[in-house]
Design a protein around this nucleic acid. Sequence first.
DNA 1: CCAAAAGTGTTTATGATACACCCATGT
DNA 2: ACATGGGTGTATCATAAACACTTTTGG
Lengths: 229, 229
Amino acid sequence: MPAIEEALRPALTVDCVVFGWGEAGLRLLLIRRGRSPFKGSWALPGGFVRPDEGLASAARRELDEETGLSRLFLEQLYTFGDPGRDPRGWVVSVAYFALVRQAGLEPRAATDATRAEWFAADALPELAFDHREIVRLAVERLRAKVRYAPLGFELLPREFTLGELQRLYEGILGGPLDKRNFRRKVLGLGLLEDTGRRQEGVAHRAARLYRFDRERYRRLQRGDFAFRL
Amino acid sequence: MPAIEEALRPALTVDCVVFGWGEAGLRLLLIRRGRSPFKGSWALPGGFVRPDEGLASAARRELDEETGLSRLFLEQLYTFGDPGRDPRGWVVSVAYFALVRQAGLEPRAATDATRAEWFAADALPELAFDHREIVRLAVERLRAKVRYAPLGFELLPREFTLGELQRLYEGILGGPLDKRNFRRKVLGLGLLEDTGRRQEGVAHRAARLYRFDRERYRRLQRGDFAFRL
DNA sequence: CCAAAAGTGTTTATGATACACCCATGT
DNA sequence: ACATGGGTGTATCATAAACACTTTTGG
């Protein structure tokens, strides 16, 4: 079996676009780079892939190391390999798309002296490398996919009110939604389980708390059922 | 600027899933491998990416070299990097999805002694590496995307009849479509230009020939227009 | 009693589906 | 004249959109 020449090998990284949902709307997790190139710039969390791990595992490992986040929704986004995208030479990056619950929790800075911080998705600082383009693609994917896949629930607490869910969709899709139509559609999917409990400590009528029924969703997927919001 | 250790570099390939449309339906272009590993097996056309080219360029170059095809529709599909997917060691592959017109033309075997051949998409031989999985994903993508993007036209001759277009959609989606509804919907998009000419040499009433208006599609995309079939 | 969000139905418009016959052409 | 696919309209059903008021709770 012929070996592969070293000169034909690129460096391989993963970069993660991590979305969160907070009071101010859609947020995105960035780290401040502690190393050259782009030392001091903001960038997507990520790093070099190791030979003995898969791509998704590398993304999870880097996220855990750099931001302390784990157990999040993760899917591959796109692979960037234009020559010249990294000043260090030939570096190909597999970008991942991640959604994290309870974005209010402070991410901890970890292994290397990187600092992780949340930014409003529509007010990002300058980013290193081609990370702006990666973010643009990720936002586009989020906006498109949230309408035909139950991604929104990955950004909310395990139990949530219909009002919270509606505000989330309005924030991501970028426009107001009709309350009655929204509620009818969401409940009509038959994927929300009423916990029987209600919000506490709010200065108005307390709303019902719902849970997304992941199991039921998986079962319905096998048929010709279509999620659509 | 720190260099990147050689040990941390994978080999990088592109693999192309090339779809064509012929009398027998959806077809897929495979090459017979002339080299180990999997020498003699059928596999997706593809090969190693060079340091000075982009990923899509590499895919186009490999396709041209191995099959003589150029000027086709090409988009990135997914990146495969599981450890163990290639017996030669750490090989990451960026898979591309391609559509080619006039699949009736014989692909020529080219540079290396590979032979390219068309296979019915639903009767493929055993494939090398994880190429079966790559094909599965590509077919899934084709089926989904043909409904909300004008991909079908990339498989037909520049000028086609509505009957041909309908047979194409039926073949890809895998079920019969209502003729009147299909024609109404397609023409209702306002994206087909009537050439004024008709089929020739058919043993029945000659059908009108249409052309897909790519320019108009691009203009409409800027608004809130949605392609949907 | 006021502010703030929860909760609730009906009407209208739009798009999707089902369905059958005549037409034009080549052999 | 017959075989083959081309070409056409309407009625019905389902889904989406528009729209406003009452209820509950805490402060």
